[in-house]
Amino acid sequence: MNPRTAAVFDAARTQQRSALIGYLPAGFPTVDDSVEIFQTMLDSGVDLLEVGLPYSDPLMDGPAIQESVEIALECGVTTADVLSVVDRLTPAEGQAVYVMSYWNPIERFGVQKFADELAAAGGSGVITPDLTPEEADAWIEVTDAVGIDRTFLVAPSSTDARIDIVSSATTGFVYAASTMGVTGTRDTVSDAAPQLVSRVRERTRQPIGVGLGVSTAEQAASIAGYADGVIVGSAFIRRVLDAKSSAEATAEVGRFAAELREGVGRSTHLSEPDA
């Protein structure tokens, strides 16, 4: 595991809480604004940042992320810009910066080059929602060599055999998609989430982050009861989309991050360290 990723989950465990993981696309609404918003997220209590790489065909994403990504792409954001955003961020001790990207932009940029440049920019890992371990031979080799983490996903429909495949290919943390569906805020986080986490927990010692649909501090608190990380994306985006100025967007995102951070610490963390 990349040392920064390890520090994130170690610190959370020590403080008996879950890690807060926050997502926004880079270049949304502009490259400079996104740097400021990301830094505010880090400064307001987000432990692990997912810097989204905007892609033209985000088939796992719901309306909020689609809209934000379209805005970023219309402004001409590129993979090089995304890496520069990571480079400009200054995570504190115990914080980490990941990139979340569909596979084609990474393959097009060059798998080795992408890993090298991300590591050089201070990135700690990459989440690839449409890359399964079966297709990831080159990616596994390169990320191992460079020392950045790679997160694959599990879903409620994953069989035990697939959970084994995914968790053994993952370094850093396993991303548990809490529900069958696309990203987006939901009033209730599916019942499938706790069950999925306990199934994954039986089969791996890796930290588990739960995402898809988390939009309030209450939901964050309840997920923190059984997961090592709580992942929030669309609800951050909503705040940026609804803001009337970039200053307001930054302030709203900061306020929301602080609320969520309070949420993930509210409930006693149930998972045993390295149980």
């Binding site: 596979w103 399964t132 996903l153 599990v154 879903a155 409620p156 429909s157 069989t159 998609a177 569906g181």
Partner: peptide, 12 residues
């Protein structure tokens, strides 16, 4: 070819 899809579709 291959399968480049969200994990949620792998079972299907």
């Amino acid at each position: 070819g291959g399968r480049f899809v969200p994990e949620a579709l792998m079972a299907a």
